[in-house]
Each structure stands twice: as C-alpha cells, then as structure tokens.
Design a protein around this nucleic acid. Structure first.
Length: 507
RNA sequence: GGCCCGUUCGUCUAACGGUUAGGACAUGCGGUUUUCAUCCGUAAAAUAGGGGUUCGAUUCCCCUACGGGCUACCA
C-alpha cells in the first residue's frame, strides 16, 4: 500500500469548534498509526466569508492540542501551497478540461435569474428546485444556448460559472470506510457549480483537485459531506483520476447535549461549557467565547475526552495518552451514530489527569493563579498544597478557590460549623491544645496527630468534639484535607497564631 | 417535501448469530474518613416498534416510527 497522507481542511471562517478538532484529531491519529503524513490545508475559496485571525487561531489551537502537522501553511511541504487562494491558478484548467470533455458547461445565469427559476418551480409545486438535466434546458448556459451565442458571451467577458453536467439516471457508488457502500442515483443530484464567476473554484472542485495533486490517500471528514461525496466520486472519474481516488471515511457528528441537532458554535456558552479549544474573540463584535485552554482544562484530558466521542478501543481502558491513542486508533472502531456531548464526562477526564500530575507540576499552574491574585508563595510550599488538594479538585483553579487558607489566615469562620461544633467549653480546649502544640519540637503531621490524640484521651474527648473546632480555627471552614497535614505545612508559629486569632474572634 | 445516514441503560459505549446484554459518566443507597472530596461496595437503568431469515437474533433483510445531515456561484 502506498503512503498514507491525510488532510484536515478547514475554512478560516471563524474559530474551530470541538467537532472540527475531533476531525483533525482522528485524521492525525489515523495518519500516525499508519506511519503517514498529516497535512493542513486552508480552504479559503469563499472570499466573502473570510474572517481575520481565524487561520492563526486554527493553527494555534491545533498546536495546543498536540496535533502536529507534517505539511501546512506554516512549515510548507513539497505539495504546496497549502492555501487554496494561493493555488487559484490551478483550478480553471481542470474545469475547462471538464467542459471540453463534455462533463461540464458554462452557465451565464445571474443570481436573479436563478431565484426566478426557483420561484417558478416552487409555484409549479416542486419543493426543492434544482439546476439539473431538466431545468438547465431553460437557462442561460452553453448547453441551451447556440454555440455562436456562447462564444459571443465569452468574448464579451460576460461573467460565467462552470457547472457539472449531471448525467441522467446513473448509479454512483462509493465505499465509505465507516458506512460501507453508499448508493446514489444521479437523478437526485444537481448540476453543482464547480467554478464560480469570481474566478475561484467551489469546495467540490478545489477539494478533488487538491486531494489528487497532494496525493491524499484517505479523506476523513464530517458526515455533513456525505451527500456531496458522490459528486466528488464523479469528479475523480471525469478527470480521469479514478484509480488515484482516496478512500473516504465520513465521521458521525457531535450533537448537542440537550435537545436536537448538531453541536453549534452558539451552544457552548449557552449551556455552560466551552465549544472551542481555545478562547476566541470575534474581531467584529468583540464578543468572546470561552475555550478549554483558558477554562483551565488539561489538554491531554481534553484530547482524551474528544477521542472517545465516537471512537472506543474495545477494551475498558479509558485513559489514553496521545501516544497510546495513536497506537490504539482504528477507523474500524469509529461508530456510525452521532454522539451527544457529555460535559460531566469531560470534567471527569480532567479530574483523572489532574490527579495523575505531581504536586510540583501542578504548582507551576497554581503559581500563575496565585500571582494573579497577588499571592507570593514558595514553590515547594505550593507543591505540597497541590499534593494535599489535588484529590478533591477537578481544575487547578479549584485548588485556589478551596485552599485560600493555605496562603492567608481566615478572615471569617464558617457559621454552620461554629453553630454545631463551637460550644461553651470549646475555647478552653482550643487554648489548652494550643499550648500543647506550642511545646512540640517536631511539628510533623504525624507528631501533631499523636499529640492531639493524647490530649483527647487525657480529657476523655472524641475526635468530633475538638477536631472541627481546630479545623475552623486554622482554615475557617468545616471541611478540607487532613488537618494535621495542613497544620504541619503551615508550621508551628502560624498554627499557634491562627488559633489565638480564632479564640479572639469567634466568641 | 426530496435524497442520504443513523437508532443498545439518562449520556458515551461493549457484545461483529448462542452472554444472567458488559464497562464508564451521572444518579440512589451503604462502608471508610474529624469533615468534604477521594476510595471501596452496592442498586436502579437499555437492544425504538412490527414483520421476516434462522434451531437460535442486539447482531442479517424488509416496513414503520424517531433522530441527524444535505438540499447556495458556503464550506
């Protein structure tokens, strides 16, 4: 088998949403699994939809995801250029070739004439009018007009589009890797424009020409392309490239978690989770949409979650590194049905990855948040904080929100805990405990625990009698990690100090 | 409306003719824990419906229903 070459081919019309990221990911996993190449091609044939910054966004987002490109607009490659607008000159000759061979024709219809035709057809009871073998005879094109008239218009520089001449009643079949044989009759297909009057090809032509000239072996794309895949097959055939036609794999779509329809760009912030890999600010409206990166997600968790939306390894293993995904990935195990996005599962993945990281590594991220909040802290201290908190956090930011007491003494004390656990005799016990702790030379967690328990025993007290009061004194809260660990990390001086403040403030 | 694709617990999915239909997330209930979280255990939870084919259908075929996609000189 020849070299595997796949491409991810987005349009720079806005930010890439997670469905697009998943398509890119599956392309990448497939290519790397086969030892092949991953190519990024920018499909910017529609100049009217160009959005500034979208291309840069896309490249940056892919990079954050760890999807590496072998050939792209960034690093080039031997099949460039990798942007369709820069390949503009390549397409017209192929379109003209098709006209010459009788597979396509010139169409001079204006958009007004096209709408008029549709209106007419609708009035006559055709629900979705098409430019096809029957309607084309009534339109302004090189099939209906005389040869002289066509030449005259061409010479006069009249704008024209080139349409494919869809044959009557032919079966087009294609063998999709995921869906098997798909059969479509050409009677249900229309004379799609393949070359626009603005001098650019449409997606269909550009796609086929580029995939052929870039020696793409597998086209892995979203299911929304399945209806036009037969057209592409026909194009390969008419261009004489049937033997070099890539294999197709149409991926199921990612659906909204609630209600119906495919996940759209607007769903994210509506439902409280990001739909974009990284944050995006609309250059026109300045409206910002949240991203996973900025939301504090671990990219490996994000990728792992995405990989499981429509694919599974067939085992019970769920945590996969990118390398493991590459090794395990196969298109055979991609499902056929659309998958509803599950935000809870996404959080769960992040939690798993968070806990697998060391305190030192997490500390680097937590330090960023601490600095933003004006907190200066020693790396080693922060690493221990992370070690103590990571089991109960989903995001790094949780550790800041739930562990502020590590960095400054509490300014308020949880009311409910006070009400339930701070009784009349509590101050006396806290005071005595404070003195006992002050006498310790070894302020390790173990030693504090021993001393604490000794005190309880001597006074015939239970854990529940004094520990909550001790905790609220140090942290202001009724819950958290092992208090002995916290006290030890805070150190003797700070612990004693906080107990004194609490005794003063709580009564 | 037409064309195409799809349909297993609430969700993601496993089982590629023979299983008590398995796992994970979420949920309920226990246990562990000073507490919360974790962790452990446990429960409830599905083959859309109807016909075939077969000794036997989640699995193959047909119909219906439902869902999705497409139906632009957008990709």
């Amino acid at each position: 088998m020849s070299e595997v070459r796949v491409r991810f081919a987005p349009s720079p019309t806005g930010p890439l949403h997670i469905g697009g990221v998943r398509t890119a990911l599956y392309n990448y996993l497939f290519a790397k699994n086969k030892g092949g190449k991953m190519i990024l091609r920018i499909e910017d044939t529609d100049q009217t939809r160009f959005v500034p910054g979208a291309e840069e966004y896309l490249i940056d987002a892919l990079k954050w995801c760890g999807i590496e490109l072998d050939e792209s607009v960034v690093d080039g490659g031997e099949y460039g250029p990798y942007k369709q607008s820069e390949r503009k000159a390549m397409y017209l000759p192929y379109a003209e070739q098709l006209v010459k061979d009788g597979f396509a024709y010139y169409a001079f219809d204006t958009s007004e004439e096209l709408t008029a035709m549709r209106e007419r057809m609708k009035a006559a009871g055709v629900p979705s009018p098409q430019y096809n073998s029957v309607t084309r005879t009534t339109m302004q094109n090189s099939l209906a007009l005389s040869e002289d008239e066509v030449q005259k218009r061409l010479d006069a520089g009249d704008p024209y589009a080139i349409r494919i001449k869809m044959p009557r009643n032919e079966e087009v079949r294609l063998n999709d890797i995921i869906r098997g044989w798909v059969l479509v009759n050409t009677n249900n297909m229309d004379d799609k424009v393949i070359f626009k009057s603005d001098g650019m090809p449409t997606y269909h032509l550009a796609n086929v020409v580029d995939d052929y000239t870039m020696k793409i072996s597998h086209v892995i794309r979203g299911e929304e392309w399945l209806p036009s895949a037969p057209l592409h097959v026909l194009l390969y055939k008419y261009l004489g490239w049937e033997n070099a036609m890539p294999e197709f794999a149409h991926l199921p779509l990612i659906l909204k978690p609630d209600g119906n329809g495919k996940l759209s760009k607007r769903d994210g912030d509506r439902l409280g989770f990001p739909v974009f890999p990284t944050q995006w600010t609309n250059p026109e409206t300045k409206e910002t949409s949240s991203g996973y990166r900025e939301g504090g997600y671990i990219k490996e968790a994000f990728i792992n979650m995405l990989s499981f939306l429509g694919w599974n390894p067939g085992t019970t293993q769920e945590i996969f590194s990118m390398q493991e995904l590459i090794e395990a990935f196969s298109l055979d195990r991609v499902g056929k049905a659309g998958a509803k996005f599950d935000f809870d599962k996404t959080r769960w993945f992040n939690q798993q990855y968070l806990r697998a990281k060391s305190g030192e590594v997490l500390a680097q991220d937590l330090q960023v948040i601490l600095k933003e909040n004006g907190v200066e802290a020693d790396d080693k201290f922060v690493a221990t904080v992370c070690e103590q908190l990571k089991e109960r956090a989903t995001f790094v930011k949780d550790m800041w929100e739930e562990g502020k007491y590590y960095f400054s003494a509490p300014t308020s004390y949880d009311e409910k805990t006070i009400r339930k656990k701070w009784k009349e005799d509590t101050p006396k016990y806290v005071l005595e405990l404070k003195d006992r702790l002050a006498g310790l030379s070894d302020f390790s967690s173990e030693n504090i625990e021993i001393e604490f328990k000794k005190y309880l025993e001597e006074n015939e007290l239970g854990m529940g009698k004094l520990l909550p009061a001790f905790r609220v004194s140090l942290t202001g809260l009724g819950m958290g990690p092992s208090l002995f660990d916290i006290a030890s990390l805070l150190g003797k001086e700070e612990t004693i100090n906080r107990m004194e403040i609490a005794l003063e403030k709580i009564n």
